[in-house]
Simulated scan of single mutants.
Amino acid sequence: MAERGQRPICSTDPPRWLSDDAAQREAAARDCKTCPLLLACRAAGEDERAGVWGGIDRGATRTRKSTVSVDLLIQPAQTPL
């Protein structure tokens, strides 16, 4: 994705995925369904207690801010030298 200059939809409006508003998070989770990073994002957010990760709403962010950056999910793999 990154090598083609594309970014996941969550990178265009990150606050929706971490909103305290349940309706915003519900809409964000629906938008995840067509993302090519759905499964990687879901795996990255497995231990998260808040926000939308891979189409799964883990609740409001008041209790904890996310620690995983969307940029980590879309960077091309680095090959060892």
Rank of each mutant, 00 (worst) to 15 (best):
M1P: 01
M1C: 06
A2T: 05
E3S: 04
E3I: 04
R4V: 06
G5T: 06
Q6I: 00
Q6K: 04
Q6R: 07
R7C: 05
R7W: 01
R7Y: 02
P8W: 05
P8M: 10
P8Q: 07
C10P: 05
S11I: 09
S11G: 09
T12H: 11
T12C: 03
D13Q: 14
D13E: 12
D13F: 11
D13N: 13
P14L: 10
R16V: 04
R16C: 06
S19L: 09
S19K: 13
D20M: 11
D20R: 12
D21S: 12
D21W: 13
A22T: 14
A22M: 09
A23G: 10
A23K: 13
Q24T: 13
Q24L: 15
R25V: 07
R25Q: 12
E26W: 06
A27F: 12
A27I: 14
A28S: 15
A28F: 15
A28R: 12
A28V: 14
A29F: 10
A29H: 07
A29S: 09
R30H: 13
D31L: 00
D31S: 03
K33R: 10
K33M: 10
K33Q: 12
C35L: 03
P36E: 09
L37H: 03
L39K: 01
L39E: 09
A40E: 02
A40G: 01
A40D: 02
C41H: 00
R42H: 12
R42F: 06
R42V: 02
A43W: 02
A43C: 01
A43G: 01
A43M: 02
A44E: 05
A44V: 02
A44W: 00
G45Q: 00
G45L: 01
G45M: 00
E46K: 15
E46T: 05
E46L: 08
D47H: 08
D47T: 13
D47I: 07
D47Q: 13
E48V: 08
A50H: 00
A50Y: 02
A50R: 01
A50I: 03
G51E: 02
G51Y: 00
G51M: 04
W53V: 08
W53D: 06
G54R: 00
G55Y: 04
G55M: 05
G55L: 04
I56D: 11
D57P: 09
D57V: 07
D57R: 14
R58I: 03
R58A: 05
R58L: 04
R58M: 09
G59L: 06
G59R: 03
G59H: 08
A60W: 06
A60L: 13
T61G: 14
R62W: 13
T63N: 14
R64E: 04
K65E: 14
K65D: 13
S66F: 09
S66H: 14
T67I: 15
V68F: 05
V68L: 12
V68A: 13
S69N: 10
S69F: 02
S69W: 00
S69A: 15
V70I: 15
D71H: 12
D71Q: 12
L72A: 03
L72N: 06
L72M: 10
L73T: 02
I74L: 12
I74V: 15
I74D: 10
Q75P: 00
Q75E: 14
P76E: 08
P76R: 05
P76H: 11
P76F: 02
P76L: 09
A77I: 09
A77L: 10
A77C: 07
Q78N: 07
Q78E: 12
T79D: 14
P80D: 04
P80N: 10
P80A: 06
